[in-house]
Simulated scan of single mutants.
Amino acid sequence: MSTDDGYSTQTDSEPRRELAARGGLSFQLSPGLRNKILPFVSLLVLVMFFGVLEPRFLTISNFTIVASQAAPLLFITLGATFVVLMGGIDLSVGSAATLASAFAAVLVRDYNIGYLAMPVAIAVGITTGLLNGLITTYFRLPSFLVTLGTLSIFGGLSLHLLQGRSVPVGNPPFRQLAIGQLIPNLPNAALFALASSAVLIFVGSWTRFGRYIAAIGAGEAVATVAGIRVRRYKIYAFTVSGAFAGVAGAFILARLGSGSPQVGANFLLDSIAAIVVGGTALSGGVGGVHRTLLGVTIVSILSNGLGIMGVSSFTRMMIVGFVVILAVATTIDRERMMNVVK
């Protein structure tokens, strides 16, 4: 049975009844409350751990670095969260961001389009997301397999566009879009990412789109019976995911000053890690953008702290992999996943 404070008291087993008879009480943290508390506890532990071991960690300059590094990941995960929330997954977000960055880089180099690179990148991202959504829904294919395939397709297109090498972008006004600071010590890319988070938190919590996406993730069959146009909203979710991958691609291009065919390679693992660490379950129906914002903070601080301590990038990849497994183990609905497998 559940108590009002978010804990569950179980008295259905003989050992627990014996414990109660001796005057003891057994409480177990409920799954919902656990998923909400653990990310905050993890963040606090990380900040204390790195702050004690590395004095450079708790500095304004390092805060600026973390914010700059976290911004593209936050953009990518904002859209991808809706796909995961409805019970799907988008493995192509990193490649979509790379493709958007590549298109924009070529146009800035050849035509000096400046700020217009942003809408171009978003348009490319929307196209990739729409393609994923249409294939997934109309061909009734698992999103895992579809986006695994488009991951390679988008990556190959990027290599063709850039001819396998980096393309420098010498456009100072466009670069200021990401590295400039309207607020001191806070890069513009991070400022725009936080503003986008606020908008999508509202969308996820207070609009029909957000409610329907969560309903589909909680039970697609029930959502269909309730009159929700599941196919349409699945396409919407993938399109939003692609659009924000495009935004990320534009800001990556502006920050680095060049388009690279490998620029989005690390975002696949990091995006999944941030989403599940924040508390959005891969089985769908639980979570949201507000939790992803926390997950991105955790992953970014973990990566930054390990880097300051001198841990190699290879070891960091391994640690993030372990974090993903641990996060999935604590958030996934095993009963629903078993039903899917059956």
Score class of each variant (00 low, 15 high):
177 L>K: 05
205 S>N: 15
324 V>C: 01
66 V>A: 09
246 G>W: 07
278 G>T: 02
268 L>Y: 07
2 S>R: 10
223 A>F: 04
325 I>A: 03
301 I>K: 02
151 L>K: 14
233 Y>F: 15
197 S>T: 14
94 G>Q: 11
66 V>G: 12
211 R>N: 13
167 V>C: 03
167 V>N: 04
207 T>L: 11
78 L>M: 02
72 P>F: 10
47 V>H: 01
19 L>E: 12
224 T>A: 11
295 G>Q: 05
335 E>C: 00
228 I>V: 15
255 R>M: 07
291 R>P: 00
197 S>Y: 10
308 I>F: 05
146 V>Y: 10
133 G>V: 02
28 Q>C: 01
157 L>R: 01
288 G>I: 04
53 L>W: 14
281 A>T: 14
283 S>H: 01
101 S>V: 02
154 F>P: 14
1 M>N: 10
42 S>T: 14
299 V>K: 06
300 S>E: 06
177 L>M: 15
213 I>L: 11
9 T>N: 14
199 V>C: 13
136 T>W: 09
206 W>R: 15
255 R>N: 13
95 S>P: 12
269 L>G: 05
332 I>M: 10
307 G>P: 09
120 V>S: 05
314 F>A: 13
66 V>T: 01
238 F>W: 07
239 T>L: 03
106 V>P: 06
190 A>R: 03
16 R>S: 15
267 F>L: 14
4 D>C: 01
171 N>S: 02
167 V>Q: 08
287 G>L: 13
274 A>V: 05
143 S>Q: 08
40 F>E: 04
169 V>E: 13
90 D>M: 02
209 F>E: 04
97 A>R: 04
18 E>Q: 03
141 L>Y: 00
26 S>F: 14
215 A>C: 01
22 R>S: 07
